[in-house]
Design a protein around this nucleic acid. Sequence first.
DNA 1: CCCAAGCTCTCGAGA
DNA 2: AGAGCTTGGG
Length: 863
Amino acid sequence: MIRMTEPSKITTQTVPDHQPAAGGIAARARASVGPKYLSGLNPEQREAVETLDGPVLVLAGAGTGKTRVLTTRIAHILSQGRARPAEILSVTFTNKAAREMKHRLGQMLGHAVEGMPWLGTFHSIGGRILRAHAELAQLKSNFTVLDTDDQVRLLKQLLQADNIDDKRWPARMLAGLIDGWKNRGLTPSQVPAGEAAIFANGKGGKLYASYQERLKILNAADFGDLLLEDIRIFREHPDILRQYQQRFKFILVDEYQDTNVAQYLWLRLLSQAPSSSSSLPGLTRPSINSSQDGSPGLDASRRPGDDEQDHATPVAAGEKPHVKNICCVGDDDQSIYGWRGAEVDNILRFDHDFPGAKVIRLERNYRSTGHILAAASHLIAHNEGRLGKTLRTEDQDGEKVTVTGSWDSEEEARGIGEEIEQIQRKGEKLNEVAILVRASYQMREFEDRFVTLGLPYRVIGGPRFYERAEIRDALAYLRVINSPADDLAFERIVNVPKRGLGDATVQMLHDHARKRRIPLFEAARAVIETDELKPKARGSLRDVVTQFDRWRAQREVTAHTDLAQIVLDESGYTEMWQKDRSADAAGRLENLKELVRSMEEFENLQGFLEHISLVMDRDSGADEDAVSLMTLHSAKGLEFDNVFLPGWEEGLFPSQRTLDEQGRAGLEEERRLGHVGLTRARRRAMIYFATNRRIHGTWSTTIPSRFLDELPAANVEITESKGGSAWGGTGGYGASRFDDMEAFGSTYSTPGWQRAQANRNRGGGRNGGGGSGGFEEEAATFSSSSPGPDFGSFSPRRRGPLTIEGELVAKSTGTTSDFSLSDRVFHQKFGYGHVTKIDGNKLTIHFDKAGEKKVVDSFVQRA
DNA sequence: CCCAAGCTCTCGAGA
DNA sequence: AGAGCTTGGG
């Protein structure tokens, strides 16, 4: 496996502050007389903007001006006359990022940027290309984009048709598998046999194939197809590929560390210089991480007739595909989307994939104070698979990062609430306060608290607008109008509002449709001419068909917003919610109005539907002064003066599930998430953890996150939680504390807790963990790291030199418990029992009545 | 065909 | 704890 840089090179390669960027005379000459958009850039940024030719990788650490570089680069290309707006392909991951870039470009160029038609998310641009060549994917250009929900419902139908027990083999799981395959660029015939077999006794691959067939019949594509079908079209039709290669003179990619294999392949195809040669290099990805079986994923050519397989041979070593001007910007330390197929390897091996690539590091941080940056850097230094950057700041040290322990998550929310009120009293804006949680279920407690306090807040990236039932219903009506073959949409609304068309009727329509190979809607039209249905159902169905025919006719002469309103009213859908007396009915009606309003931004119904499924976020009242509440994931790219980071506990953060599924790679991704969280803060970062947390409705005792131990003592301050902490100071939760804990229940030994415990013990035994005891500052040293990163290895032990010193270490009060095996003990809640296992100050006790429990020794007394 | 009660399952991040 | 789904009775 190839590593890009030796650690030793990293520091020396950094461009010194005062010298002009490499690039020599030309760059210097431009530097003095350069256009004004270049002024204010530091030398590295400037180099990233001005190196227009050939592949460029910009390693942009948090807060180093990444977006600025990207937008300035586009401005530079345009003003140098190197390309017209329509010749620049610029891809981002989120709509937010795309909007932000458009906005900043507009500001920079002064005049309106009418062009830049190819600035957008991977999915929107992929979808656009697919629509242009839909017929090559057996689709019509008005195809529907299915979201996860539709996908699962469709798969459920397929499972039923195949008589597969969807209890044992959930549709969700299959959806996840298919998603994963698509992320890796695999069509049904390319899925390795072993993987296809793991679902439903070997039917996985076949189901994937029939799912794809169904999609074509429904005139639909899922998110993965938006890229995968492009790739297939490019491969099968070199002339089309060449057309795009010629069009795009420059390619820019944001957040490159988040790209998955499919996105990588897509980019790679587009980034080849146009060539008429039949041997297209780079059609496949060279083996990713030297997997032992030697199957690089794409060479599974089991099915005859897939002639594109012929190209699927790895690029020969030394072969240099001609690559044009592609600039990828990313930060390996912010790669947090491994779970959806992102390959950190894409960025780690950039110069291998794009030979001759210039790598530019942006390490000057303009965002955070010294202490925050030091803490974040120190934390991330524990990762092995890094390219290695050292973030620097010229800002002052500022306040130390605080770590606060609370008894439980309610106290945590209370403490943070009070802290925020203090910030407010100091006259700071709530807009500059954010709470970043690991899992969305953590949000509720804060919302409750803020409602009580009357503190304005907004949830960012919460349940998405178009995922709401009423929006999906309304969209389904519009989808049926737009695409009569959209059976999923038809099925969704055929009996909404209630029309007496239940499962029996729908089933009958299905049979009919399948027999004649026609869409459900057409089946309905046929069936109402027969007397197969009871008169009542028949009448209802006739009404539905007639209504849709009328709406489709109206579509020609009515503005699409008016049409939507008409459809909602005439179908009785609006009325349905007006009659509904539940609390949220009013809100739903409001949402429907909002939906109709939002349609105004689009030319017509078709354009609206094309976009709606790709637009995830709705900007909600950003002008109001309010605290922001969001997940760590959705915080990427944002910054705030004050950042609260609650829930730093084993099992929650790092997430047990990630650890279980991804081993050490997962742990490193979680650590990067912590790094992202800390680097969101400009002036104050405040970490919290609770000793007790409610998970799945029951209280569990948790132990502080290992990441706390990995913070540098010199930059961190331990504080007391407001309202009394069970942690620190008093030396552990005493029995008196426990007396108050009504809710402390039976779940001390949840599987998650046990796993966390097991992992912790396996992970080097540096400390006994435990919620009890105080932090002690201590110059801790542990050894780490073999010379090269070692992906794919799950070895929990680190080897080699690299020492990290000066860390906080949580020390358990009693690493030696007073109890010994089979001691008879008494517990206030569980009664009498005897000790079966001792682990530091944690005891496993078999209680006479309550069974086996894990308990901290201070909770029990000798019987 | 509809509704209500009971049941199970989830509770990691997104386009 | 809560949602979503299945089941049984009207």
